[in-house]
Amino acid sequence: MKDNNALGIQYLQEGKYEEALAAFSKEIEENPENAVAYVNFGNVLSAVGELEKAMKFFERALEKDDAIGTAHYGLGNVYYQLEKWNEAKDQFELAMKKGVNDSDIFFMLGMTLLQFEQPKLSLPYFQRAVELKPEDAEARFQYGMCLAGLGLIKEATAEFEMVVEEDSMHADAYYNLGVAYAYQENREKALENLDKALDVQADHMLAAHAKKILTEEN
């Protein structure tokens, strides 16, 4: 039989939040010193938008075990949702120092640094996220955006191509591919990708505008 923590995680992954809260609550009741249970409880609260309450559980987890990096990661996510970028950055960095090093944390730190409009700082974090999880289309898209922002158009093009291979419904990736090919004076490829962006999302105004400019040029 699964323990309450494992059961709660299963429920959380299935989107059964009430059942997950019940399982983690039982775990906290039976093992009040188990810091992981507080983190898990906080994760559920965070998932349902109870951010202030979630924060309290992550803080309680750190009171039980100050070495638990996942509590800092949870706090970082809460601060990110509250648009408190400096606090989010600090918490994600603390989580890393305490051993959290999966693709998600590199992605979130990259996203946080983007809020400071410093794509150069974000770039290595998105790059690492993609190395750790090559199938993560969103991390790869952001990596491509950073490359494009730094003027590395060919490198960005290669990343956007991989994004649409992984996620054929990624309208923004098609749009950015279109722009990247336009920069490289490949009008045919540019229009092809802008059309794909509009196929996926008919009201993609940026794609429609870029297509209009390219069409009028001829």
Results as ranks from 00 to 15, higher is better:
125 Y>L: 03
55 M>V: 08
109 L>F: 10
129 A>Y: 02
74 G>L: 04
38 Y>A: 02
47 A>H: 03
128 R>Q: 14
125 Y>W: 12
148 A>K: 11
6 A>D: 14
196 K>L: 09
116 F>Y: 07
156 A>M: 04
189 K>F: 00
112 T>C: 13
160 F>P: 01
150 L>W: 11
203 D>T: 05
81 Q>V: 07
39 V>N: 12
186 N>G: 03
114 L>F: 11
210 A>I: 03
49 G>N: 04
36 V>F: 01
142 Q>S: 14
190 A>N: 10
37 A>G: 02
199 D>G: 00
167 D>K: 00
186 N>M: 07
68 I>T: 05
75 L>M: 08
177 L>S: 04
115 Q>S: 07
58 F>N: 00
212 K>A: 06
153 I>A: 08
22 A>I: 08
1 M>R: 10
93 E>K: 15
207 A>M: 07
60 R>I: 10
136 D>A: 10
45 L>K: 09
178 G>I: 01
202 A>W: 00
90 D>Q: 15
202 A>H: 01
112 T>F: 09
161 E>H: 09
108 M>T: 11
48 V>G: 00
32 P>G: 01
201 Q>W: 03
187 R>M: 06
133 K>A: 02
44 V>Q: 04
70 T>A: 12
149 G>M: 15
143 Y>E: 11
184 Q>L: 04
161 E>R: 11
193 N>Q: 02
112 T>M: 12
31 N>H: 07
78 V>F: 03
152 L>F: 10
96 M>E: 14
29 E>Y: 11
165 E>A: 09
156 A>N: 03
83 E>T: 11
4 N>F: 04
183 Y>R: 11
80 Y>F: 10
39 V>L: 06
208 A>C: 06
217 E>T: 14
60 R>F: 08
62 L>K: 15
64 K>T: 15
132 L>N: 03
18 E>V: 06
199 D>S: 03
117 E>C: 05
128 R>N: 08
149 G>Y: 14
30 E>F: 02
12 L>N: 09
157 T>L: 00
118 Q>L: 13
155 E>V: 01
48 V>Y: 02
32 P>L: 00
214 L>K: 01
195 D>S: 07
139 A>C: 10
153 I>P: 06
199 D>V: 03
137 A>W: 07
151 G>C: 03
202 A>F: 00
68 I>G: 01
139 A>R: 12
